[in-house]
């Protein structure tokens, strides 16, 4: 899904408290992504992001400093830049509480640190383009929270349910399909897949569905 090369690279600020990891990420990103700033704590991250206003911030979930809120705190304190700066959360942990916390704080996606450099570069481009990045694991969380099988319509708030199509898309992503494969499987365009994924992300962020909170609490460790 790489966009046509030759355009100027996407500027990225990298926030992680481990120097080794930042070095590794910088080395693994391809030419389409340029790291223009780094930060190693909550306060430094907020300052750097406000100063540089990059289109994309790669944000570690667990960060020292600030009020101890980690990546989610950075997101909250950068809320004034919403629309201009987009965040992609990175974490070693697959714990549901981490995922839900950063997504609900406004991150446009969540990837684990085991991701390959090419995939990460792709994810950065997708986030820069305004789309959401769903790893299979995140899709699994969504299905777990919203119910994987057809849901009896409780409550009338459409934010609290996934549509049949959204659920299908989530299941395919959870099965390891790329967006392109999802599109060809469902006979829809990649753009439509991206629209569905963004809609799911919005629901995940805004839904007051009690299962979401209850589930996150019950499975604080997954």
């Amino acid at each position: 899904m790489s966009e046509p090369a030759g355009r100027r690279p996407i500027d990225v600020v990298l926030v992680d408290d481990h120097l080794m990891f930042r070095t590794g990420v910088k080395a693994s990103l391809d030419d389409g992504v340029a790291v223009i700033g780094e930060a190693d704590s909550v306060d430094a991250a907020v300052a750097v992001v406000h100063e540089l206003r990059p289109p994309v911030v790669l944000l570690d979930v667990h960060l020292p400093g600030g009020d101890g809120g980690g990546g989610a705190e950075v997101l909250r304190r950068c809320a004034d830049l919403a629309g201009e700066v987009r965040f992609l959360a990175l974490s070693v942990s697959d714990a549901a509480e981490d995922v839900v916390a950063v997504i609900r704080a406004g991150a446009r996606g969540y990837v684990t640190k085991a991701i390959s450099g090419a995939d990460l570069s792709d994810a950065v481009r997708r986030v820069a383009g305004g789309d959401a990045v769903f790893s299979p694991r995140l899709a699994g969380f969504v299905l777990d929270a919203f119910g994987a099988t057809a849901d009896v319509a409780t409550g009338d708030d459409e934010l609290d349910r996934l549509s049949a199509r959204e659920r299908e898309v989530m299941r395919l992503i959870a099965r390891g399909y790329s967006y392109r494969e999802v599109a060809s499987e469902l006979f829809i365009s990649i753009k439509t897949v991206e629209t569905h994924v963004s809609a799911v992300l919005r629901k995940l962020q805004l839904s007051s569905r009690h299962e979401l909170t209850r589930w996150a609490a019950a499975r604080r460790l997954l």
């Binding site: 299979p136 699994g140 299905l143 994987a148 099988t149 299941r171 959870a174 099965r175 390891g176």
Partner: peptide, 16 residues
């Protein structure tokens, strides 16, 4: 990748 989905009346596994 392995995806296991346990519904109320079916268990499905996808290995890809």
């Amino acid at each position: 990748s392995v995806y296991l989905e346990i519904g109320p009346d079916t268990v499905e596994v996808f290995v890809k």
